[in-house]
């Protein structure tokens, strides 16, 4: 297959766009789409100080690379969750550190174990919903580092497949509250929070992986988070890919049309309270992170006695 722009050998066939592209034109288009998402959804300004949450995986490192290429002032944040199984945290941390070092970028490393005395496996003690526990921890740390570091926005590597599969999950359960909050830019509802933006939301997972490979980004490819095995999100992504295989462009249409109509879903505005333990915004007296910390410590004490 030949590149639709220059007739060189193509490296990817974007069936949704009826476009085959060579390395050079694929990278060029990838950056154009990132910039398009930033403008279309008003994700950030050229002068914004951006904190990119990096995991060592393809999406977050591709995002950091793309934002830097486009001239944004972006620092990275790696949250070390202390997952020792398969050496997961150590390997992913090394990938993030090496990426930053090679490009002369600033990476902030936040160790959950060092800061709170508990690793992710200890925090999820007794909880079946490991991915939601991980989400609570990451959100708390991201907000804290963004606030303390004086950043304007927090950027995550969520791609089109992530967004479409979350949307499908919300709709399958008719969770209209969560659907109402899903957006490429999630506004801050409290002065201690920062807007969260998803500049890769118009690009598929295959496109971000291809970008990472073409740009020579050394990302965690062989390893998956040991806790994500059998995750529902993977099953939903595979289901969407089956549909995409049959009808190219469905994922993009599903997500972008949702964004046009998402106002039909409503969510309650959270009350502007602050957690009495950490001082961060909270729906209740204690925020979900501090509740998790308390529960895990209590369970740990019970086990030790």
């Amino acid at each position: 297959m030949r590149c639709s722009r220059c007739r060189e050998q193509a490296v990817i066939n974007l069936r949704a766009h009826r476009l085959a592209l060579c390395e050079e034109h694929f990278v060029e288009r990838f950056l154009e789409v990132v910039e398009r998402a930033i403008r279309r959804y008003s994700l950030m300004r050229r002068s914004s100080r951006v904190l990119v949450a990096v995991s060592g995986g393809k999406d977050s490192l591709a995002l950091w690379d793309a934002l830097t290429e486009l001239g944004y002032r972006a620092d990275g944040l790696y949250i070390d969750l202390g997952i020792r199984r398969q050496d997961y945290s150590r390997i992913s941390r090394e990938k993030a550190e090496r990426f930053a070092e090679q490009r002369g970028l600033e990476l902030r490393v936040f160790s959950v174990q060092e800061e709170y005395g508990l690793s992710m496996p200890e925090l999820r003690r007794g909880s079946r919903e490991v991915c939601s526990v991980c989400g609570i921890v990451k959100r708390h740390v991201m907000n804290r580092v963004a606030l303390e570091g004086g950043y304007h926005v927090l950027a995550t590597g969520h791609n089109l497949d992530d967004e479409a599969s979350v949307l499908l999950s919300n709709l399958l359960r008719w969770n209209t509250e969560l659907a109402a909050r899903q957006a490429p830019r999630v506004e801050a509802w409290h002065e201690k929070l920062r807007p969260k933006v998803k500049p890769l939301c118009l690009l598929t997972e295959k496109e971000t992986a291809t970008y990472a490979l073409v740009r020579g980004i050394d990302y965690v490819s062989e390893l998956e988070c040991p806790f994500s095995a059998g995750a529902t999100s993977i099953a939903l992504k595979e289901a969407l890919n089956r549909i995409e295989e049959h009808s190219p462009g469905t994922k993009l249409y599903f997500y972008t049309q949702f964004l046009k109509h998402r106002r039909i879903f409503r969510s309650e505005k959270p009350a502007k309270r602050e957690c009495r333990s950490c001082g961060f915004p909270s729906a209740g007296e204690l925020c979900s992170f501090c509740r998790l910390l308390l529960k895990s410590r209590l369970r740990g004490e019970k086990r030790d006695n």
């Binding site: 999406d59 991980c134 598929t204 806790f227 999100s233």
Partner: peptide, 8 residues
């Protein structure tokens, strides 16, 4: 063949 899908 390199898997493009990751989850969690």
């Amino acid at each position: 063949l390199i898997s493009a899908i990751s989850g969690g």
